[in-house]
């Protein structure tokens, strides 16, 4: 998969915003991931070329971070916090339930309908609402198996209506 001309243009416009060129790498990777859903080897090379950097350097940055993905994910990727505060309030049960709901055996496995995947993450900084999870750029608080079921059901319906 290759990046669109628009994305490349946007990436090329990033460097002047920063005192040094390399600071543009993570935001450039955001643009690429936003467009393709993940960072393919070709995309990382294109990002590097657009910024005039070495592809190996860009890949080195991309592979460090939890929020940058080189593997495909479900359309809704759920980040479930399982650090101590959430675990004390039932995060393990939430993960267990989630796997059953979307029919996957492990983290990052994509559900058969392509809609869902999940991963367990470290503290997301909302412990007073534990257990909690993040999906599609927002936080879901006080998660219970029932709430989770409603959430998944909602997304399934949305996908059914949309397609």
């Amino acid at each position: 998969m290759a990046l669109s001309a628009r994305a490349i243009e946007e990436i090329r416009s990033l460097p002047p915003r920063f005192p040094h060129l390399r600071s543009a790498v993570p935001p450039a990777l955001d643009i690429a991931q936003e467009e393709l859903g993940r960072l393919t080897p070709e995309a990382m090379t294109e990002v590097a070329e657009a910024l005039g950097l070495d592809p190996g350097y860009v890949e080195g940055v991309a592979t460090f971070y939890t929020l940058l993905h080189t593997q495909p994910l479900g359309r809704h990727h759920l980040y479930v916090c399982t650090n101590l505060s959430c675990t004390l309030r039932g995060a393990e049960e939430i993960c267990h339930h989630l796997r059953r709901l979307i029919g996957v055996k492990e983290e990052r496995e994509i559900s058969a309908d392509g809609l869902f995947s999940y991963e367990e993450v470290e503290c997301l900084g909302a412990c007073e609402y534990a257990p909690m999870l993040r999906c599609d750029g927002r936080y879901y608080y006080d998660v219970t198996p029932q709430k989770l079921e409603a959430l998944i059901q909602g997304w399934r319906q949305e996908a059914g209506n949309g397609d």
């Binding site: 940055v61 971070y65 940058l68």
Partner: peptide, 22 residues
Amino acid sequence: RGHGAYICGEETGLLESLEGKR
């Protein structure tokens, strides 16, 4: 914006991240 790494809360780790490095 960061991209998900606890080490970025450490001040020099943060600076490296801000500079677009690992």
